[in-house]
């Protein structure tokens, strides 16, 4: 039987977690993170218990305040990503600066608008100026996309326009073959394994197309079962060394987190 290793306590960093503002679900995730001694990158997409695709300025600020609060409560565990709505223009940039100066380490974009649209450009410019990565939702579904939803080709377009930006394309782009094919020639794009079913071959394909250095473990918890997400990495037919990179080393490098800090 395959070994559960190296998906073991103290050797995992989850790059894609949400603070749902649902006390029970959030507490359940935190308990898991502590049990597995697993630090995580976290964003909040709505301050009142539901994710808001196109939030107001006030909703964004209150959501980010919750993450700042959690970071204070969980030092060395919670690494905040600032939720931003590109449609807010200058106010979005002001909010990003506020959050990064408050200790957040990245920017989270969801589905307010596709990231290849002009409205998103200033967000990538700001991420370069501040030296933080952008985590961009990407989901290529067989049926109709959600309004404002990005797919891998949007991420690739943004990455090519801003080669100095560091972008994490979430969910392997959902359709992982199309997703990896779209970003393979964008060295400034990483991908995370979060939020999709544990489809056989998906992690191997990501490693084959991007190299293990550009693949990050993520769960999309607490909405997703952390164990089902985590199990993909030991399950994949890749080397032990590559599993370690995916499980924690790549994220620590991308976010400039020294192992000793954890």
């Amino acid at each position: 039987m395959k070994s559960s290793l190296p998906a073991e306590p103290g050797k995992i960093f989850d790059i894609h977690v949400h603070l749902l503002a649902q006390p029970e679900a959030d507490a359940e995730f935190l308990q898991f993170a502590h049990e597995w001694r697993m630090p995580f990158a976290i964003s909040c997409l709505g301050p009142d218990g539901s994710m808001i695709p196109n939030p107001t300025v006030d909703e964004v600020r209150r959501a980010n305040d919750k993450v700042l609060g959690l970071m204070e409560q969980e030092p060395g565990m919670a690494y905040g990503f600032c939720y931003a709505n590109p449609l807010h223009g200058q106010q979005a940039l002001d909010e990003i600066r506020r959050c990064i100066s408050g200790g957040m380490v990245g920017i989270k974009l969801w589905i307010a608008c596709p990231c290849s649209r002009e409205e998103a450009f200033s967000i990538f410019e700001e991420s370069i100026a501040l030296g933080v990565p952008v985590l961009q939702h990407a989901w290529k579904r067989i049926d109709k996309p959600l309004p404002g939803e990005s797919v891998a080709s949007d991420v690739a377009a943004a990455a090519k326009k801003y080669p100095d930006a560091r972008i994490i394309m979430a969910h392997l782009g959902f359709n992982w073959r199309m997703g990896m094919d779209a970003i393979k020639d964008c060295p400034n794009v990483w991908t995370d394994t979060s939020g999709i079913d544990p489809e056989m071959g998906s992690v191997e394909y990501a490693v084959q197309m991007l190299g293990a250095d550009r693949v990050l473990y993520g769960s999309d918890a607490p909405g997703r079962d952390t164990l089902a997400q985590l199990g993909k990495i030991p399950a994949a037919e890749i080397s032990h060394k590559d599993k370690e990179k995916i499980l924690h080393q790549n994220a620590e490098k991308l976010l400039n987190i020294a192992e000793a800090e954890q």
Binding site: M1, K2, S4, A7, D197, P198, E199, M200, D225, L227, A228, L230, G231, K232, P234, A235, A236
Partner: peptide, 17 residues
């Protein structure tokens, strides 16, 4: 659900539940 899913995932998540 193999071969659609990694079969080890169900083993892993059941054992660690």
């Amino acid at each position: 659900n193999m071969p659609f899913f990694y079969p080890f995932v169900t083993t892993f998540r059941t054992m660690h539940s």
